[in-house]
Design a protein around this nucleic acid. Structure first.
Lengths: 350, 350
DNA sequence: GTGAAAGCGCTAACAG
DNA sequence: CTGTTAGCGCTTTCAC
């Protein structure tokens, strides 16, 4: 087959304008035309302009496969999402997606529940030689993914960061968050504190608990009572109400690992056990999700500065993409202020 | 693994095992080795086994760029998400992602707020020659995207379907949903009905309103009063409370375009205007989101069968990918039952 | 500056 | 069945 004829009958499935088509149309060589699209290539301004103009007219689109094949760097960026833990992750995903589009980068998404799925997804992804890979997760699954050295320095962890400190990541300072809430509750006069954990292997949860406990210790209080449930869900929080009620007389306040747990706990206490909040017990959450502000719950919580963390994330992500890879380190974003609402009050029981 | 030149100052960007490496290692020709990975290629079972085994040992991964370049069909599937209208969309996204991974397909995500962003994203995507593109949206933005003929028959619309009937899509039967809720409210003895719209250009919203109104007409009732607000949000619902309260004496029940609006309206009525629900007015939503079931709100709503619609979606999506493209048509999924809770009651006011 | 030519890694005709 | 030979569309030497 000679590639000269342009009869429409030739190949219906591939009506794509190629660089060669463009070159022939313009009576230039392929190389010249190619150079017009390359940033620092030796080509006259005039020639470049002509090419670019005609390219637009003919609706020429470079074939990314050919480009990546020869140039050996793709315009692809990967995002790995482990479990749908929170809508917040998808807000992140959206914002990342938009930033990438602006840079003419495409986003490959890998989502999975289990390690082996994520592993498989990452393998597929790596075959595309992505510029960078963002790992969004709060569970330990992400840590167990086997990483080739190549993969390793393309990764950027968000929210959950592996124990291994040789990686790059952005995360909230959850210990500080736990400590801050302990301070607030203690300041309210509460002395008998408790922590409600999701029971999941989540670094966020662990760290909040640690920070909370540590501050109790520093203040000379007993270790907070620890309640556990099964998951970061409203239902899990509600299910924990029975346990908490059983110890109600030993308790002034409960700090929950996340707002959604606190909301569930609150409703469980109120509706199943007719416990009044905050009269009988103070309840606080963490994150300041939208529903915490609903008048039906009016949950005291800790604001976590989303914008800051997202900004940091995008900054780092871009620097990996641009190959100014920062040295491995975990960026810790400090928590915001306690948002005081009606689910907590001064201790009047003692 | 492989011992090629490795000067440490130069970037070692491509320590990739190629087909040729494999072939040389095995003393076979590239084509034979290639054939081992092709489904119906003429190759002896023995040869194939040898190749596959060694490939695994050497951790060979086919270069998808080279593959797509020559084969002119990629293993990429696109998903276009227009605005973060609901977490439901992300549930879909997750499920799609998992199905695709099982089929060794990768997912390119395009997210955007405005038409031109989506357009740009789609253009980038189309350059990768995806097998299919799923468009998830409930707003009319999606309709205005310019589609090349090639793009056109790769698209599958979800939830929102363009007026143009020459496309393939899956959507709820929202008119039937509106009608069903009208029936339920009328059956409760309510005669003076109202509809709360998001005020957005959403087909879901329009259709629910149409179905609701039409059933009122069929039953000989007046057209339902129409309230509008600005968005599919809790806050928008709450903001509408003032308008609804102003007409409280003319109203028995309000059907809201979505649960989240109903929840906001309910809280607005209760907390800002001390209106009792359902004593003073019945409020119903649509979708049956998790929060509708919280005891704090206990919202009567209509269950929309998620599983069914997702199943249909995946079935169609797969058939496009496998090139058994079904003829253009909109699959309408019937609504489920009314979930009766405590935000609606019999009419006792007349 | 520009063009000719050599591949990037792979698949798909061709022969044998 | 297997090896040889062309390219897929593009970037990038290398000459001119």
């Amino acid at each position: 087959m000679n590639g000269k004829d342009r009869s429409e009958k030739d190949r219906p499935p591939h009506p794509r304008v190629t660089l060669k088509d463009l070159a022939e149309d313009l009576g230039m060589s392929v190389s010249t035309v190619s150079r017009a699209f390359q940033k620092g290539s030796p080509i006259s301004d005039r020639a470049r302009e002509i090419v670019l103009t005609r390219a637009a007219e003919m609706d020429y689109k470079a074939n990314p496969f050919a480009r990546s094949l020869v140039g050996k760097k793709s315009r692809i960026v990967g995002v790995l999402v482990s479990r749908i833990s929170s809508p917040f992750y998808y807000e992140i995903l959206n914002r990342i997606a938009e930033h990438l589009r602006e840079d003419n980068l495409t986003l490959m998404l890998v989502a999975g529940e289990h390690v082996h799925e994520l592993q498989e997804g990452l393998n597929m992804l790596m075959a595309y030689d992505p510029l960078a890979v963002l790992v969004i997760s709060s569970f330990s699954d992400a840590d167990s993914i086997a990483l080739s050295p190549t993969a390793r320095n393309k990764l950027l962890y968000f929210n959950r960061v592996p124990a291994d400190s040789l990686v790059l990541g952005v995360a909230y300072d959850n210990r500080a968050a736990g400590a801050r809430m302990a301070d607030y509750l203690i300041g309210l006069g509460h002395r008998r504190l408790a922590y409600l954990s999701s029971g999941m292997d989540s670094s966020t949860d662990h760290e909040r608990h640690q920070g909370f406990s540590a501050r109790c210790a520093e203040t000379g209080l007993n270790q907070p009572l620890l309640f556990g449930t099964k998951g970061f869900t409203y239902e899990a929080g509600m299910a924990a109400a029975a346990d908490v009620v059983a110890r109600l007389d030993d308790l002034d306040a409960v700090f929950c690992a996340a707002d959604i747990l606190a909301l569930g706990l609150m409703d469980g206490m109120r509706h199943h056990f007719h416990v009044s909040v905050p009269e009988d017990i103070s309840i606080a959450g963490c994150d300041d999700i939208a529903m915490a502000g609903w008048p039906s719950h009016s949950l005291t919580t800790l604001r976590m500065p989303r914008d800051t963390i997202v900004r940091e994330l995008i900054r780092l992500f871009r620097s990996i993409i641009d190959d100014h890879r920062p040295s491995p380190e975990i960026i810790r974003v400090a928590p915001g202020d306690v948002v005081v609402r009606n689910s907590t009050g001064h201790n009047v029981r003692q």
